[in-house]
C-alpha cells in the first residue's frame, strides 16, 4: 500500500475525528455552564445529583462510559439501536464527559470573581441577568481560558477512544490498516495528524488569550 493511498484511506478517519471533536465542543461547552449552575445551585438535591454526576464522569474511564452509552440501551432495556446510533453514542459519551470537566472549570472561574463586582453592578442598577452575562462572564472566560485550552488539547487525543466502540475515526482506521498490511506507517501518520491538529488548536487558543490580554 503506497503512502498516498494510505493517507487518502485515513483521511476519512481524520474527518470523522474532527467531526467528533467539533460536535463534542459544541455540545459540552454550553452544557458545562448549565452543569456548573446545577453544581452551585442552592437547591440541595440538585447540587448533590450534579456532584454525583461529575464524580462519576471524572472517576471512571471515558472508554468505559462510551461503551455504556453504546451498549447500555440494548443490555439494560433491550432497545435495538440502529446503525446510526454508533456516532450518536460517541457524541453523547464525549459531551457528557467533557461537560463535567468544563463545569468544574466554569465553577472555579465563576467563584473566583469577587463579590464586589456583583455588588457594584447591583448598586448601579443592573439586573442579575445583565450582570452575569456582561460583567461576570467575560471575566470568567478570560480566567478559565488556559484550563479550557488544556481540556481542548486532551480532547483531540481522546477522540481516539471512539475506537472502543468501533467508530471509524482516525485511530480505528489506522489500527485496521496496520494489522491488515502489517506496517506501523499508519500509526506514524496518525501521530502526525494528532500533533498538527493540536498545534492548530493551541495556536487558535493562544490567539484568543492574546485578544483578551487588554485587561487584567
Amino acid at each position: 500500500m503506497s503512502l498516498q493511498t494510505m493517507i487518502s484511506t485515513l483521511s476519512s478517519g481524520m474527518l470523522k475525528s474532527i467531526l467528533v471533536y467539533v460536535c463534542t465542543l459544541v455540545g459540552a461547552l454550553p452544557l458545562g455552564l448549565f452543569v456548573a449552575f446545577g453544581r452551585m445551585s442552592r437547591i440541595k438535591p440538585v447540587q448533590l445529583i450534579i456532584k454525583f454526576y461529575i464524580s462519576v464522569m471524572r472517576g471512571t474511564p471515558l472508554m468505559l462510559q462510551l461503551m455504556v452509552v453504546f451498549f447500555g440501551p440494548f443490555f439494560l432495556f433491550g432497545i435495538r439501536t440502529g446503525s446510526s446510533y454508533r456516532f450518536a453514542a460517541v457524541i453523547i459519551g464525549f459531551v457528557l464527559n467533557y461537560a463535567a470537566y468544563f463545569a468544574e472549570i466554569y465553577r472555579g472561574g465563576i467563584e473566583s470573581i469577587s463579590r464586589g463586582q456583583y455588588e457594584a453592578a447591583q448598586v448601579l442598577g443592573y439586573s442579575k441577568a445583565h450582570t452575569f452575562v456582561y460583567i461576570i462572564l467575560p471575566q470568567v472566560v478570560k480566567r478559565i481560558l488556559p484550563a479550557v485550552t488544556n481540556e481542548m488539547i486532551t480532547l483531540v487525543k481522546d477522540t481516539s477512544l471512539a475506537f472502543a466502540i468501533s467508530y471509524a475515526e482516525m485511530f480505528t482506521m489506522a489500527k485496521q490498516i496496520a494489522s491488515s498490511h502489517s506496517t506501523l506507517m499508519p500509526f506514524v501518520v496518525a501521530g502526525i495528524f494528532y500533533y498538527i491538529f493540536n498545534f492548530i488548536v493551541a495556536f487558535l487558543m493562544e490567539r484568543c488569550e492574546k485578544r483578551l490580554s487588554y485587561y487584567r
Binding site: 469577587s114 457594584a120 448598586v123 442598577g125 467575560p138
Partner: peptide, 17 residues
C-alpha cells in the same frame, strides 16, 4: 430608589474589562 443613590467602595470595584 436605587437611582437616588450611589456608592463608592473601599476597593473601587471598577469593571476591569
Amino acid at each position: 430608589v436605587r437611582g437616588y443613590f450611589g456608592l463608592v467602595f473601599q476597593n473601587f470595584n471598577l469593571f476591569p474589562h
